[in-house]
Simulated scan of single mutants.
Amino acid sequence: MILRSLALTLLLAAAGAATAQVRDEPTAVSPVTVMPPTPSPKVVATYPAQGETIAPGVLIVKVAFDQKMNPRAWNYGAAPDSEQPECVKTPRLLNDQKTFVLLCRVLSNRTYKVALNAQPAGGFANLGDNPAETHVLTFQVVRGELVTTVAGALKAAGLKSEDQPIEKAPEPAVRPAP
């Protein structure tokens, strides 16, 4: 009994000292954003559309989601047993914060299947980091008039010139002469 009483006294004294120490020293707290639970984002539109037939050459794949997305969260690849178009590594999230665009090249007489969020880690996710559902976009490319410019690919995808799939690097700072 005496040992319990002594242990309790020591514990209370230590807690009091810790409280006094906390009061004397300010504690820095970083801001935290807590996002409410959200449903998984869903693909609402694509270019090419599911099953669409398009011309070969330069292609801008466009994927629109039903909610605002994280610009740094994405993954895409070839669906099993299919070809993937040749694409740059990183898609760009447009100003609406719901639509990603990806610059690619496609060849004639092919069927492509692009899997979005097919890998278990990472992937397209909303601002609360809730991942989008897996989606497979399938389209065919036939012989036709070759799309040879990004401007032509933008037009085919229904995009504007400011919706370029690759952002320009910032201009270097100009230093004044000494």
Rank of each mutant, 00 (worst) to 15 (best):
A15Q: 13
V44D: 02
V61D: 00
Y47L: 06
W74A: 00
Y76E: 01
Y47T: 08
L59I: 06
G123C: 12
K68W: 00
A14F: 04
P41F: 05
V114M: 14
C87G: 05
P31W: 11
A45T: 08
A14N: 04
L6H: 10
A118R: 01
P85T: 00
A78V: 00
G51Q: 12
K98T: 14
A7N: 13
W74V: 03
P91L: 02
L12M: 06
E86M: 13
P56L: 07
A45C: 08
Q21L: 14
V88Y: 07
K113P: 10
V101H: 03
Q67K: 04
D24A: 15
P80V: 00
A49Q: 13
E86N: 08
T38W: 05
T134M: 04
F65G: 08
P41K: 00
A7K: 04
L127K: 04
N70I: 08
L94G: 09
E86H: 04
R72Y: 10
P48Y: 11
V101E: 11
A125T: 02
P120E: 15
N126Y: 01
C87V: 00
L107N: 12
L11A: 15
K89L: 14
G123W: 00
L6N: 14
M69T: 06
A121H: 03
S30L: 15
T53A: 05
V29L: 15
L103V: 04
P36S: 10
L103R: 09
A118F: 01
L10M: 12
V22N: 12
N109C: 04
L102W: 05
R110F: 07
Y47C: 04
L94Q: 02
T53D: 05
Y112D: 05
P131K: 03
P48S: 02
V61H: 01
V34H: 09
D129A: 10
P56F: 07
L11E: 02
A125E: 10
S30W: 12
L107T: 14
V29K: 09
I54F: 01
A73Q: 06
R23S: 12
L103Q: 09
K113V: 00
P80R: 02
L8N: 13
L93P: 09
L11D: 12
N75G: 12
A115K: 11
F65R: 03
S108V: 12
A18P: 10
V61I: 08
D81Y: 03
D66C: 06
N117F: 05
L10T: 09
S82E: 00
A17N: 11
S30T: 15
L10V: 14
D129L: 14
L127D: 00
C104R: 12
V106N: 05
L94F: 02
T9Q: 11
P26K: 08
A132E: 11
K98S: 08
A20D: 05
P36Q: 09
A7C: 12
T99H: 03
C87K: 09
L103P: 00
I60F: 07
K68Q: 10
T134R: 15
Y47K: 06
A73P: 03
N130R: 09
Y112C: 01
V29A: 11
E133Q: 10
T33Q: 06
L137W: 09
R72E: 12
V22H: 14
V136L: 04
G128I: 09
L10E: 07
I60A: 01
L102Q: 01
Q97F: 08
S40I: 07
T134I: 05
G16T: 13
